[in-house]
């Protein structure tokens, strides 16, 4: 195995210093943070990730492992485990979509380990990214090409793709955060900042290796999810090849604020079909102010996929993604919401 340095700082401040020092000593350092480890250790075994230093953040749970409702927002500590958030009464009652997105992901064992912050940073399952014997992967080796373009690409993205990368963003929780206009509290060596969740992930473009807007040495500390009229009437619908322990082929995170059967506000994010957590603003705009009929749902779903760019094996994802959104919208329309 490849040797690496390991540290386990006891506070967020110490962790930031550890990483800052590592980066100062070696500007090209491949140092990485370790949270639940369900992605990082997996990729290290595959040698896709080869950090020279691991800064273990698992002692930070006391500082940033909280889940609470502060009267206007859900505040989710980045070091809370997926299972803790999925089972939390405030999350389940106030924003069912968030609880569903978490409990439909992975397996119970993984949800007990994986953190919320690590979850949104989960790397793609693209086989050509995960197998280093494929020399062409722009995400793994910038400028090397993309083996998936002409390869087996059933699982790949149809939205947000480029000629450089079509790898699907694999997570579920991120779609919920995106739909609900969450923001991300980031701690960094130069102080903290808060950004909209929508600005966390970067579409591949010409630089698929740059996946987020996090700067070197920064750590996600918290997600803040502001309440809205659509909070309770929300769901996460996940379509997949088996009933559990499987990534989405297509998913939809949808929240609606209805007045009678008319849409006052809609929030739509799509998963399994895009390179990044995908906000379908065109769909939302088409729904706003309209009665939620099958026709309206279908028009919104079509609008969400007008830019779709399928490849050899994933053309079905356009129709499937649309049907997933239609199904989610119509299911929400008839959902009973306790007030």
């Amino acid at each position: 195995m490849r040797p690496f340095h390991y540290s386990r700082p006891s506070s967020l401040a110490e962790a930031l210093i550890d990483m800052r020092d590592a980066l100062a000593a070696e500007p090209n350092s491949s140092a990485a943070f370790l949270a639940g480890g369900t992605t990082q250790l997996d990729l290290m075994k595959l040698e896709v990730s080869r950090p020279d230093r691991l800064v273990d953040l698992n002692a930070l749970r006391g500082e940033a492992g909280h889940i609470r409702w502060d009267g206007t927002s859900l505040r989710l500590g980045a070091f809370a485990r997926m299972a803790e958030a999925a089972d939390h009464p405030d999350v389940r009652a106030r924003a069912p979509m968030i609880a569903q997105s978490l409990s439909l992901a992975a397996s119970a064992q993984l949800r007990n380990m994986a953190t919320l912050g690590g979850n949104v940073l989960q790397r793609t399952r693209c086989a050509y990214f995960r197998d280093t014997s494929w020399s062409a992967c722009n995400k793994r080796v910038p400028g090397s090409g993309c083996a998936a373009l002409d390869g087996v690409n059933r699982a790949h993205a149809v939205l947000g793709t480029s000629d450089h990368c079509i790898a699907t963003y694999p997570g579920d929780f991120a779609q919920a955060l995106l739909a609900l206009d969450a923001s991300v509290v980031i701690a960094g060596p130069g102080g903290g900042r808060t950004i909209p969740f929508a600005r966390l992930h970067r579409a591949p473009g010409t630089t698929p290796h740059l996946e987020t807007s996090l700067r070197p040495g920064e750590i996600i500390a918290e997600f803040i999810v502001p309440a809205g009229g659509w909070f309770r009437r929300s769901l996460y619908l996940k379509v997949r090849d088996r009933q559990s322990y499987e990534f989405a082929v297509a998913s939809a995170a949808v929240a609606l604020d209805l007045e009678g059967d008319t849409v006052r506000e809609a929030r739509v994010a799509l998963g399994g079909v895009a390179t990044v957590p995908w906000r379908a603003r065109e769909a939302e705009a088409l729904l706003r102010g309209r009665k939620l009929t099958e026709e309206a749902a279908r028009a919104a779903a079509q609008a969400a996929f007008t830019e779709a760019a399928p490849h050899a094996h994933n053309a079905f994802k356009v129709e499937l993604g649309q049907e997933t959104l239609v199904r989610a919208l119509l299911q929400l329309a008839t959902m009973e919401t306790p007030r």
């Binding site: 050509y128 002409d150 390869g151 087996v152 059933r154 088996r242 322990y245």
Partner: peptide, 25 residues
């Protein structure tokens, strides 16, 4: 077993991507 036609490799040669039913199925 998914085959890449460029080199005859199995690109889902692991128990995560080689689809098998789980208990829920």
């Amino acid at each position: 077993s998914e085959i890449d036609h460029r080199n005859g490799s199995y690109i889902n040669a692991n128990l995560a991507e080689y689809l098998l039913p789980v208990n829920a199925d």
